[in-house]
Amino acid sequence: MKVFWKNANLRLKFGLIMMGLFIVLGFIVPLFPHVNPIIYNTFAKNLKPTAVNWLGTTALGQDIFWLLVESLRNSIMIGLIVAVIGTTVGVFVGLLSGFLGGFADRALMVLTDTFVVIPSLPILILMTSLMKGQASIIVLALTLGLFAWAWPARQVRAMALSLKERDFIQTAWFSGEGAIQTVFTEILPFVWTWALSNFMNAVLVAIASESSLAVLGLSPANLPTLGNMIQWSRERNAILLRQWNWIGPPVVLTIILFISLFLLITGYNEYQTMKRGR
């Protein structure tokens, strides 16, 4: 751990610290007793920040601070679920396709290519508009996950194809290791580094897609997420009424979240390159 921290570059350190803060804010802070921020008229409407309501209240009488905390947690959850689905399915399909070869490989790759090429946003719009904003967080994450596996699958397949030809894999085959054992003990360690980086990237993309859907009014209607929170304030004319304490926090938090995640990803990739270089 100490060695890791000594070798880590500035971007990676900054990204890790910021993500730590976000996790604390999104998952530890809600453990403290607080009001339910979804319910209307818990407080007076349109309050400026006070000692009780740290960020004031919305035009619907909701506490902005707790709404923000709840939104952050849900956004991160969506990102994590989609990234888990996308990365797991992607690695699985990629390995399968790369190692099976032949017809199975070709069929899987046509399917994968289709999902890479299909414009995901219009289809997401189509699907979520049919759900009419009634989807749960899981259904939404599954829908987003539908488009998160194809690109990883392509990348992993390319890796599998090049790994297949290496000597140590041949040695493993000849020494009688089964296919599954080979994949777990010989291949996965190689894919792992890449998968982690892809995982973080998928979190970023998923949170962004959810907020794009929210702008269209297609994210689940009662689920506070960063995108939805911005959209709700926009719908209630928070811009024209200059309620910056309402629309400001989710916008600023989203910007910081994305820059931190991006620094974490690029920092991590740089760290891996450096480790290989030694």
Binding site: L204, I207, A208, S211, S212, V215, I230, R234, I239, V251, T254, I255, F258, I259, L261, F262, T266
Partner: peptide, 16 residues
């Protein structure tokens, strides 16, 4: 690098 990772709609909203 600072602008690139931010979701597009946030950039558009802030500009607006």
């Amino acid at each position: 690098i600072t602008i690139y990772p931010i979701p597009y709609f946030i950039v558009a909203l802030v500009l607006q």
